[in-house]
């Protein structure tokens, strides 16, 4: 494997890490209206991801940086081309960061409702839009001879892309429900299992159609293995949720997400942005990459720091491994609205 191929894998791994970890962060926010009927319950939901969501989000920032360093042409064409979708994602993420951090700072129902809205927008929008964007990458977009993407916004919402958006959203919602079940006890736990149960069949259907569509239209022979893994893991999710084994359900669901996003990257390879205008205008890992020296430097940096990052992020999950229940949520220590003191 050459260094360009290796860096394609690194980029894929960074996005896979981002979606597996932020997948349940998004899911938790998406399920606020369903599972968070009282303020205390919403706080239970929020605190299941409390210590880790910020670290999870850095996977995206680092994926962006790595894309810039390893495949500047890909970075430039994709981010300039997907301008408005990216703007939507950024706005949603901005709202989410502030809403999560500031929610408990003021003890007032209206304030908290607004923050909850920010958390929900910040979870739903990126989940859907990332799906639309990645499906478009695989399907191909219009790219001209100067490596400029010329697809209009309307082109980006074809049936395959919309199915991609639904797939991401459903997979993350289920991921969030199972994660909440895994991280809570008592009534929230029981309700999360019920929601997960209800989500399984629609998720199976949508993801099933999406992966088979992806495979038949864009897949390679060996990627049938990924399709099989996704479908098998989906059955595993259904079985383990029925059996109330949320730990296994979470593992299987993570495999589902790794599987179908892995399938998207595998279908792309060795292209990174196939062009629908003319095949030769498309970007591949060979015409979009940095120089061998930059790739070598980045390889050393990644080889040294990635294990350390994985180690301390893993440790964080270990430190906060206890389940949370409504009884453990302390009274709000936010300031009252409107009082001068």
């Amino acid at each position: 494997m050459g260094i360009q191929e290796a860096w394609f894998v690194v980029i894929a791994v960074l996005f896979l890490g981002y979606f597996v970890l932020e997948g349940f962060d998004f899911g938790v926010g998406m399920l606020f209206p369903v599972l968070g009927r009282t303020d205390t319950r919403r706080r239970v939901l929020l605190n299941t991801i409390g210590p880790v969501w910020d670290g999870n989000e850095v996977w995206l920032i680092t994926a962006g940086g790595a894309l810039f360093a390893a495949f500047p042409e890909w970075y430039a064409t994709m981010f300039a081309g997907f301008y408005l979708p990216l703007l939507l994602i950024l706005v949603a993420l901005i709202l989410r960061v502030c809403a999560i951090e500031w929610r408990g700072k003021i003890d007032d129902p209206t304030w908290r409702r607004r923050c909850d809205l920010g958390i929900m927008i910040g979870s739903w929008v990126p989940a859907i839009v990332w799906g639309v964007a990645f499906a478009n990458l695989v399907r191909g977009v219009a790219i001209d001879a100067d490596k400029q993407m010329t697809s209009s916004l309307f082109d980006l919402f074809g049936p395959y892309a919309l199915l991609g958006g639904m797939t991401f959203a459903l997979a993350f919602a289920l991921h969030g429900a199972v994660f909440i079940a895994l991280k809570t006890s008592g009534e929230v736990h029981a309700d999360a299992m019920k929601v997960a149960q209800r989500l399984t069949l629609p998720t199976l259907a949508v993801i099933g159609v999406f992966v088979i569509w992806t495979q038949t239209a864009y897949g390679k022979t060996w990627t049938w293995a990924l399709v099989a893994a996704v479908l098998a893991a989906l059955l595993g999710v259904i079985a383990t949720i029925r059996a109330n084994r949320e730990g296994w359900a979470f593992t299987f669901n993570a495999i589902v997400i790794l599987g179908f996003i892995g399938l998207l990257f595998a279908s792309l390879f060795p292209n990174v942005m196939p062009s629908t205008t003319a095949a030769e205008y498309g970007l591949t890992i060979y015409n979009a990459s940095s120089s061998p020296y930059t790739l070598k430097v980045m390889s050393w940096a990644a080889a040294f720091s990635a294990p350390v990052v994985l180690l301390y992020q893993g440790w964080t999950y270990w430190v906060f491994r206890q389940r949370i229940s409504t009884e453990q949520i302390p009274p709000s220590i936010g300031l009252k609205l409107g009082s001068g003191k």
Binding site: D54, I61, A69, T294, S305
Partner: peptide, 26 residues
């Protein structure tokens, strides 16, 4: 400049952003 400029940006994410965000949560 991506070949040059991207490297410190990626290093920033890899070395610094992970560190501060994870340990701030802790």
């Amino acid at each position: 400049v991506g070949d040059v400029f991207g490297a410190p940006l990626a290093l920033e994410g890899l070395v610094a952003f992970f560190l501060e965000s994870t340990f701030l949560g802790l």
